[in-house]
């Protein structure tokens, strides 16, 4: 049984790679997208078998609900609002990684403290929470800017980079506390909250015109978050697929920057591109 699951994961991985490759060519792009959807279906089916369906009602109702929301949303959205939609979906992906990591952490810290938790696992959990949190609120902020709910202008204030740095250091400090003592739930929650705040702070100084680049970068982050959750759960398909998206996302971000004649650094430091692209 186990070998069958692993082989299905392997086939899914190959289909993902072929799918991304085909997305590069105009004529084959749609086919590529369908191939990668098939790969996702295979991965989900294999995982359902692997999980032995201990809680079938909960599992299927969550998937039905999520699937219905996603489908309706994707069909209703106006063509011009597509990039915003991608931003929201990406944010949900990041949040999902955050919740998966938190769920695994809760099992280890509170519900079954007898489980031994090694350093590699706890570091992977911490990374998933930080990256997932930043992706979540960062993507929602990008959505807000594109849809005009948040000002598309670059929002800058003095000491911004300093504040980000201090928050990042605080998050690292909390992470160290958790790494030393797995049961430090408060430190874990504080770190999660900081990562959510950081996501907003990192995106607000960037102008609306640069949002597509930011979404591409956040997309890369959500891939990395999935990759680190793979290390938490010791699951190879998560690691491979997450790494594929993480790496290709960074390259795509760079290509998009070049196409807009901007450097990645100047986009990230923000303050330029203040003319709103959204609204």
């Amino acid at each position: 049984m186990n070998i069958l699951i692993q082989i299905t994961y392997l086939v899914a991985t190959i289909l993902f790679i072929v799918g991304i490759k085909k997305l590069n060519r105009t004529q084959e792009a749609r086919q590529g997208n369908i191939l990668s959807a098939v790969a996702m279906l295979l991965a989900v089916l294999a995982t359902l078998v692997e999980s032995q369906l201990l809680t079938p009602i909960e599992t299927f109702s969550c998937m039905l609900l999520g699937g219905a929301i996603g489908l309706v949303w994707a069909r209703r959205v106006e063509m011009t609002q597509m990039p915003e939609m991608v931003a929201i979906f990406n944010g949900f992906g990041g949040a999902a990684s955050l919740f998966v990591a938190f769920s695994d952490y809760w099992t280890r810290a509170v519900e079954q403290p007898s489980l031994s938790t090694d350093l590699i696992t706890i570091i992977s959990i911490l990374l998933s929470v930080i990256i997932g949190g930043i992706t979540f609120t960062g993507s929602l902020t990008a959505y807000g800017k594109l849809s005009g709910k948040v000002s598309g202008n670059a929002i800058v204030f003095s000491g911004q980079h300093m504040l980000n740095l201090v928050l990042l250091l605080a998050a690292v400090a909390c992470g160290v506390l958790v790494a030393i003592e797995t049961g430090s739930v408060t430190a874990m929650i504080v770190m999660g909250v900081i990562s959510l705040v950081l996501g907003i702070l990192v995106v607000i100084p960037i102008g609306g015109a640069d949002m597509p680049v930011v979404i591409s970068l956040l997309n890369s982050y959500s891939g990395m978050a999935a990759c680190t959750t793979g290390f938490v759960l010791n699951n190879s398909v998560l690691i491979v697929t997450g790494a594929l998206v993480g790496a290709s996302g960074i390259i795509l971000t760079q290509i998009m920057c070049k196409a807009m004649n901007r450097s990645l650094i100047s986009v990230l430091l923000g303050g330029f591109g203040a003319t709103s692209g959204g609204a």
Binding site: L23, N33, A43, T47, N90, G93, W106, V237
Partner: peptide, 29 residues
């Protein structure tokens, strides 16, 4: 560019695999 970004965003939803594995016996987890 945009379709590729959107397509790889869907692929990053692979974290669904992790989520399925987390819906098991337990309370808050």
């Amino acid at each position: 560019h945009t379709p590729l970004m959107s397509g790889s965003n869907a692929i990053s939803g692979i974290t669904i695999v992790g989520a399925i594995l987390c819906v098991r016996e337990g309370e808050i987890s």
